[in-house]
Design a protein around this nucleic acid. Structure first.
Lengths: 207, 207
DNA sequence: TAATTGTTTTTTGTATACAAAATACTGTTT
DNA sequence: AAACAGTATTTTGTATACAAAAAACAATTA
């Protein structure tokens, strides 16, 4: 009496976590049977997860050799930031052009709790920051954009654990982006969103 | 005596072609065993192909119900154009900022054969146009951008077979983009690249 | 006849079996 | 001891088997 629902999602999430947490190291070969056994499933659903992760750029497949945890070099992280710049910039523009301004409230809510406090918990702020950037994309309602953007997460989740820049610096930048969206100033919204990411990108380059 | 190399690629290409050619209609359910048999393979390599196609947005998976050929509505095509605008715009910017200007020659070569002729073969021009837009991305050397851009192909290959606008109109626009890249004028390169796609997008909206 | 229920068929999701390729190992030769 | 060849082991790629879910069908009832 075998009983299952879709192993799909849980296996995918677990393997992803193993990569992000470093349990599976960069460049390491993923021996399918080994991981499958560790997760208590067969190779079939594991393979499905690995293929999804390959498309997310976390895993690399070399035919007849196996699947490897992808290692991201400096250049690639930089390149990902360039993509984010293009996509988040466009997202900010779209939101500014949209007549429905409920998005503004949601975006502001990400940071509202930090405005009244003196000491900001960096852990909490990092979460809020991540949410803000995801929301920026999601609220556009542009599904292809949303799907494409998955790549942007790579950096946030894999490389820079913690923030690149302090809240005092970025809080104001976020506000500027939101204000421009609210005013319907598409050019500024895009410009500020881009500059915001560019600053982190430049910083990344000099370290 | 079973003999095989990777069925992976050929199966993927065949299924993709079946979708693009319309042999598998939009919204149609893909019965795995049926297609697998038609291709002379088992469900395993077919599944791999379907997952890749799912990530390319050509196929949609509904758990426990099956895989379906994705149908693209007007809004989604429009949304894809918005993504292209952001990505190709950024690509043009990157090329303009790059000191290596060999890209310019390659881009110009796409259309060089049309400059001296009176009558332009639309079929040939469509090919050149597709090449130009792919090259724009590829020449940046930004791998994540390249991977992300795959989505852009959806439109070219699935929906609009043939061109949206006549060569007389677009030939000049292409030249303007290339010129700006050559001059190292990043702002103009991005602006022209965007306007070029935006014009098609607007046209799409009014039909 | 329409609706509902029970049964059969189909199809998915998963596990497993097995051939060929890749890798690790062993023993021999230099 | 290093290099090599030949063999054994591991691991991938594919096919297949089978249980559970879904869909199709049939039969019964209102």
């Amino acid at each position: 009496m075998i009983e299952y629902q879709n192993l799909n999602e849980p296996v995918y999430l677990k393997v992803k976590e193993m990569i992000i947490s470093g349990e599976l190291k960069q460049g390491e070969k993923i021996v399918q049977e080994k991981i499958a056994e560790a997760l208590g499933v067969s190779r079939t659903p594991l393979m499905r997860a690995l293929l999804a992760l390959e498309n997310e750029y976390l895993v690399e497949s070399i035919p007849r050799r196996g699947m490897f945890v992808r290692s991201l070099g400096q250049k690639e992280i930089f390149d990902i930031y360039v993509c984010r710049e293009a996509l988040e910039g466009m997202a900010a523009r779209l939101l500014a052009l949209s007549s429905d301004k409920t998005a503004v409230k949601e975006l502001r809510d990400c940071f509202s709790c930090f405005l009244s406090q003196k000491e900001i918990d960096l852990q909490v702020y990092a979460k809020a920051d991540e949410k803000f950037h995801s929301l920026l994309i999601k609220l556009t309602g542009n599904l292809p954009l949303d799907k494409i953007y998955f790549f942007g997460n790579i950096h946030e989740k894999v490389i820079s654990r913690g923030l690149l820049r302090p809240p005092e610096e970025t809080l104001g930048e976020h506000a500027k982006i939101i204000d421009a969206i609210e005013k319907g100033n598409a050019d500024n919204a895009e410009k500020f969103a881009r500059e915001h990411i560019e600053k982190s990108r430049i910083l990344l380059l000099n370290q």
